[in-house]
Design a protein around this nucleic acid. Structure first.
Lengths: 223, 223
DNA sequence: ATAAAAAATGAAAAAATTTTCATGATTGTT
DNA sequence: AACAATCATGAAAATTTTTTCATTTTTTAT
């Protein structure tokens, strides 16, 4: 996960970054609001941790600007003041959550998880066991945030199986949905692609996910 | 936009169709529920305007049948009866919205816009001028519903430009976001890919969309 | 008008993906 | 156990995509 920390107090920013690294997250620091906007414009982040008080542009301004532009990245605002009116202001500006300083890193983690989970529901992200499919970016990410590189057909096949997880999917249906064929071809395209997908999934996770049901089809199983 | 009007009262149907044409939408009329289903099966529509009371199959039946088949087209139900229980029934059957007769055409337009916007947000669909990007299926569709076949890199490039439509995007930023490079390579990968993308877009739409801003970058422009 | 920098282009080379084919292994049935 | 059907596999062939390179064209500044 790629996180942008927009925070002018270097100590806090660095400490967050270090903690994130230990969690396997990749964090980058912007020391003011303008820099944050610039970085967000250039690089794709999964989450923005945004300090309220910052030089040049306040966190609130950054938040409003982003939402105005239609950018939907999850945003958590950090603030030193814990009163309710700030909270309301934060949400009105388009923040997804709100943390009061001083905070523990555990709290940050918990909030991030909640916010990101909500975000995923609204986006096209499907989780299955040890990996996550990002349908719009066509990425498969493992638990340890590594990317599994799948070819187009492999991705389509996995996507279809994940969408039908547990169910048995016949080759006929696969041909329709992955190859857009209304018949099962004479060749063994399905089997060949399944084979390659299996290999990549096992290399990445060490587990066997695609089960063959003799005479019926394939099925994606948990463990 | 391709609209199907399912309405047995010819006068209403024709009036709607005429109004739609003035708005630049293409509408087709089905005079009963069965005909509506048949047309929906054969032609891709963007919206279904569905009368409640119709011969053979009622609007509600059509709605339920479509949803049962997993077809997700936005549906607006038209009804002569304005009571609340109908509204609930409509939504339960899977309609997206509900208009009570008599209605003004402005109201129809407003509801259509709202429904279609919501649908697009939920589907990760971005529109730009004469084409539409379907991010989760990685498809580019022209106004006349033809598919533009783009390679992976071409799609990523177009997607990025569409997301920044109007803005100038430097090669540096493209390299970061399309090729995941933190530098501009010595070779002219960007230019070459832009060239191929331009060719395909122009072949499909006859228009030039990607403008070069000398020394600065590229920009996707309207017309 | 001219030179230098930047961008466009066509074609070739390199790399990756998709598909096919021949062969071997597995499964269910009799 | 034997058979037929089904599936798995490795490797080759075919196709497509990506990248590079040499050259031409365009743009900007002088």
């Amino acid at each position: 996960m790629q996180i942008l920390i927009a925070e002018d107090e270097q100590q806090i920013a660095e400490s967050l970054k270090k903690n994130f690294r230990d969690e396997g997250f990749n964090a980058m620091i912007a020391c003011d609001g303008e820099m944050a906007l610039k970085l967000l414009d250039e690089i794709e982040f999964d989450l923005l941790l945004l300090d309220w008080r910052m030089p040049k542009l306040s966190g609130l301004d950054v938040c409003r600007t982003l939402r105005q532009k239609g950018i939907q990245i999850p945003i958590i605002l950090l603030t030193a003041l814990g009163d309710l009116s700030n909270k309301v202001e934060a949400f009105n500006a388009g923040a997804d959550d709100y943390i009061t300083k001083p905070f523990s890193f555990d709290e940050v983690l918990a909030r991030i998880n909640a916010v990101v989970r909500r975000y995923r529901l609204s986006k096209d992200i499907i989780e299955f066991e040890d990996f996550t499919l990002d349908l719009s970016r066509r990425l498969v990410i493992t638990l340890d945030k590594k990317q599994i590189h799948l070819s187009d057909k492999e991705f389509d096949l996995l996507k279809f199986l994940v969408q039908k997880k547990g169910e048995i999917v016949s080759k006929e249906i696969l041909c329709k949905n992955v190859w857009n064929l209304n018949f099962v071809p004479q060749t063994n395209i399905c089997e060949a692609t399944v084979k390659n997908l299996r290999k990549k999934l096992e290399e990445a996770t060490g587990k066997k996910y695609i089960k063959t049901i003799y005479g019926e089809g394939y099925s994606l199983i948990a463990d």
